[in-house]
Structure formats: C-alpha cells, structure tokens
Design a protein around this nucleic acid. Sequence first.
DNA 1: AATCTTCTTTAGAATAATTATAAACAACGA
DNA 2: TCGTTGTTTATAATTATTCTAAAGAAGATT
Lengths: 136, 136
Amino acid sequence: MTSKQEFIEKLRNSNLRPTKQRINICEVLFNRDKTFHFTINDLFNLIKDKTGEKVSLATVYNTVHAFHKKGYLKEIPINSNQTYFDTNVTDHHHFFDVKEEKLIDLKSEDVGPIEIQKSIPGKKIKSVEVLVKLED
Amino acid sequence: MTSKQEFIEKLRNSNLRPTKQRINICEVLFNRDKTFHFTINDLFNLIKDKTGEKVSLATVYNTVHAFHKKGYLKEIPINSNQTYFDTNVTDHHHFFDVKEEKLIDLKSEDVGPIEIQKSIPGKKIKSVEVLVKLED
DNA sequence: AATCTTCTTTAGAATAATTATAAACAACGA
DNA sequence: TCGTTGTTTATAATTATTCTAAAGAAGATT
Ligand SMILES: [Mn+2]
Ligand SMILES: [Mn+2]
Ligand SMILES: [Zn+2]
Ligand SMILES: [Zn+2]
C-alpha cells in the first residue's frame, strides 16, 4: 500500500519517528475518502476499532498536536467540552449540528467571499471562519 | 440610580431573585458603555475589584448561565481553555486577537451579509458567526 | 413582625478534558 | 551490535466546570 509511505512522510515532516502506534493513528486519520471531523476521544476509540490495536491516549494527544502544529490537521472553533479537529486543512467553513454534535463542511461557494472591512493597526488577518449552527 | 432597577428586572426575567451577590454581578456585567467580552474568571475577579465584595465562583457560574439561557448574554465560539461570553447579544461577528486573547466586535457592515447557499434537510439555521483571527 | 416555604450562597467535592512525568522500550545511526 | 535519542504508557497533575448539601436570605402568609 502506497499510503503507508505517505504516512511516514507526514510523520517525518512533523518531526516524529514512524512508530507502529503513529502509523495506526495515520491509518484512521488519513486513510479515507472524505474529510474527517473528530474529537480526540472519537479518534482514540476508532483506532482500537479499526486497527485492533490500542494506542495510549497520551500518544494520540501528542500526535494530533504535532500534526496540528505542522498543518496536517485543523482545529475548529466550537464551544464544546471537547476540541474538534479536521483533516480538511484548506480554508473552509462549517455547519455544526448542535443536536448531533457533528460538523459538516461548507464549500467556499456555499458561503461566498467574505470581505472584512475593518482592520486593527499592527495586526493582520490569520484566518476567517464561518460557523453556522443548525437546529431541528 | 436607575440601573439597579434594570438589574432587578433582568434578574426577575431570568427567574432569579435579586440578591446582593447577583446585583454585584450585574453591576460589573451591565453597568458599562461598551460591549464586554469576558471569561467567568475575568468576571469573578472584576467583581471583587469593582464592588469590594466577593461572590462565590459557583454563584458567578450559575448567574451567567441563567442570563445566557434568557438571552442577556451570548456565548462566543472560540477554541480556548475557557468559555467566552459577550454582553452584546445582537447578531455580530468578531476579531480574536490570538496573542492578547481578546475579542473585538465587528459590525455587520464590517463583514457584510452572509448568504448560506446550502441547506440540510430537516435542519434550520440557528446562527451564523464569523470569527476572524488576528496575529501580529 | 413572626413564621413558613422556597430559593440562594457557599465551600468543598466531583467530573472530565487535557497536559505533565518518568520509567520501560523502540528507532536510528555509527 | 551498541549507544544515543526519541517514544510509549500508566499514572499523576492540572484546570475549567458542575454538583452537593448545609446554612442563610427572600418572599409570601398570617
Ligand atoms: Mn471541515
Ligand atoms: Mn461581541
Ligand atoms: Zn493543537
Ligand atoms: Zn451558558
């Protein structure tokens, strides 16, 4: 499988040695067709389910944060008791289904360009994110 | 002072009896010119500073959540270790100065109307919020 | 005002997400 | 293979938030 080499590359780029545990984490994170929105706990449970091997929670946290720092994962701002991450690291917006606690990607076309008409001296814009909360 | 009557009204509308502690909380929350962005801890410390009286942390949490439920406070979605609230409960967007950890209001005109061109069957839009992160 | 009922305050305990620790272990390069 | 450096893991620590229950205050009733 070619993907394992990609995982190793991602890990090396993040200054992480490619260990069995980290490859398993990559398997769950990146071996999928569509974007993946998750909490650390989601990921932790999926690793055991999908690979049959357990990885410690500390390793999951550490690896996710290394990927986040490197830019392989995005953190989505939501007020929840858990932090949400996203494998889609491009600039994009979200629906958040409050009841289901699920994130859904919005394409840029779904929202349109956002022009910020205000600026703060000495500061520049790092990101612009739209969060659309959904209810029943 | 007329404001005390307003505080009592807000408290009653929130199904809270107007106690000394809650009036002090209102004093810090609502007796100001411009919008106030805060964490529970900010508020907790300001109460002691500005009124000279201490209110227990539990009471601050309870009162803030009652106001939030009633719609007198807004919760701002940010990934921080603490939850941010806002006395400006109108629909509006924010700058977030990542370094200073400070929120700044954006007027609707500063962002322009946002038209969401996608919908999810059975769900309706509850809110649309833009968060613009600022860096140096 | 005295009394009764219901709500409130508070200190402290409980909970839960995240981070830190340090000892056993694994990857890497020589 | 050996030595070095990075990694895993169980477990403890930290921290924001919520819960608990006893003592106190507010509101209603007389
Ligand atoms: Mn996404
Ligand atoms: Mn605001
Ligand atoms: Zn991170
Ligand atoms: Zn709330």
